[in-house]
Simulated assay, not measured.
Amino acid sequence: MIPDSFPCQLISWDESYELGRRLAYEIKRSGFRPDLIVAIGRGGYVPARVVSDFLLFSLLASI
């Protein structure tokens, strides 16, 4: 049987942007340098782009 809904948390653009900013900060602070950032379709491209922008990193792919 296919459910009519599933549990999820809706967040605003401002919350999404802030989460991306914080994630980029933590990545920078750790010293990790990614080879590639992968964005997952169905809503993942924009957050991945925000993180890559904060990291000043241009190698972004999507699937």
Rank of each mutant, 00 (worst) to 15 (best):
M1T: 11
M1Y: 15
I2K: 11
I2V: 12
I2C: 04
I2G: 06
P3N: 05
P3L: 13
D4E: 10
D4W: 03
D4F: 15
S5I: 12
F6N: 02
F6E: 01
F6T: 10
F6H: 04
F6P: 02
P7C: 13
P7H: 13
P7S: 07
C8T: 15
C8R: 14
C8Q: 08
Q9W: 05
Q9Y: 14
L10Q: 12
L10T: 14
L10Y: 08
L10H: 11
L10P: 02
L10V: 13
I11K: 09
S12Q: 07
S12L: 07
S12F: 12
S12R: 06
W13Y: 12
W13H: 12
W13P: 02
D14I: 14
D14A: 10
D14H: 08
D14P: 02
D14M: 10
D14G: 03
D14Q: 09
E15W: 13
E15Y: 11
E15T: 11
E15G: 04
E15A: 15
S16Q: 11
S16N: 08
E18G: 08
E18C: 12
E18T: 14
E18F: 15
G20Q: 04
G20P: 00
G20K: 00
R22Q: 14
A24Y: 00
Y25A: 04
Y25L: 08
Y25H: 09
Y25S: 03
E26A: 03
E26S: 02
I27C: 00
R29Y: 08
S30W: 03
S30N: 03
S30A: 04
S30T: 06
G31R: 05
G31M: 01
G31V: 05
F32D: 00
R33P: 00
R33G: 00
P34S: 04
P34A: 05
D35R: 12
D35W: 02
D35E: 11
D35M: 01
D35L: 08
D35F: 06
L36W: 07
L36C: 02
L36A: 10
L36F: 03
I37Q: 01
I37H: 01
V38P: 05
V38H: 05
V38D: 11
A39E: 14
A39Y: 03
A39F: 06
I40N: 06
I40C: 07
G41L: 15
G41N: 11
G41S: 14
G41Y: 09
G41W: 06
R42L: 04
G43V: 13
G43L: 09
G44I: 14
G44C: 11
G44D: 05
Y45A: 06
Y45P: 01
Y45M: 15
V46L: 08
V46T: 07
V46G: 02
P47T: 08
P47L: 09
P47W: 06
A48D: 08
A48R: 02
R49E: 05
V50Q: 03
V50M: 03
V50S: 01
V51S: 00
V51Q: 00
V51Y: 00
D53S: 09
D53C: 03
F54V: 05
F54S: 01
F54H: 07
L55W: 01
L55G: 01
L55A: 01
L55V: 07
L56V: 05
L56E: 12
L56C: 06
F57S: 02
F57R: 06
F57E: 03
F57C: 06
S58Q: 10
L59I: 11
L59K: 08
L60Q: 04
A61M: 15
A61E: 12
S62M: 14
S62D: 07
